[in-house]
Amino acid sequence: MSKRLAHVLSLTGLMLLASASVRCVSVSPGVAVELIFAAPPHYEPEGPVVSSAAAFLVAATLVPCEEAPRASWRSFGIVVAHAHTDSTSARTWLGGQRVDAMSAAGTPLGLLSPPARSYCELEVTFAPDETAETDPREDPMVGRSLGVEGSYENADGSITAFAVRTSRERVELIPFDAPLVLDDARDLARITVSFDAAAWAENMNFEAASASERRAALLDELHAYLAATVEMREQER
């Protein structure tokens, strides 16, 4: 082997070593949204006593403002179709999580890394847990999407227990008080979803309604008692 070739080979060896030793990574996390399901901030039950309120949440999707339906449509009860639960979307949480609507600490759902833009609504989907293997006699929420239990006082002063549970799927759009604007890579938002079961129970005429009417009311009136509270933070670099 000539001296020249030996020199080239040694140079290449040095380059290989130098190349292998170089490694550098720089990461900026970008905007993020933390989702949590918790009791309403001021949970002060009056009237009927709600002992438990639970739901099975299967998806939550941030709806961009430009996709959000006009408020007037909703006020007339018109359902507007959405491309919801898009499994490839970074603005969708797909889980399957039983949530306790009365837990002050809340149930953390997960962290989304949605595209940077403005969001006006959160679309949530409640549906029965089809993977649950627990005996429904042990856990009445098995196979249910929503459930509220408690007791109310009758006109004669007696106490009657109630349990309203439904197995039907429900998709709800929860508007934010103000658009959630995510336009800075350091933006971190926390969205707390809540269902005010006590307020629903307070407005429910248990004595007059049959079991099926109570179930229908739970679904039909759900929208009025759902809320999504947004808090903005800034991520530390």
């Binding site: 290989l16 990574v25 990461v27 905007v31 890394s113 940077a116």
Partner: peptide, 27 residues
Amino acid sequence: ALRVPLVLRHLAFENLATETVVGPGDA
């Protein structure tokens, strides 16, 4: 022939996250 690359890759995601990596590629 032998080719040894050194790669600098920059990724930009929709959520404004970025990632820059420098290191050896596949020879």
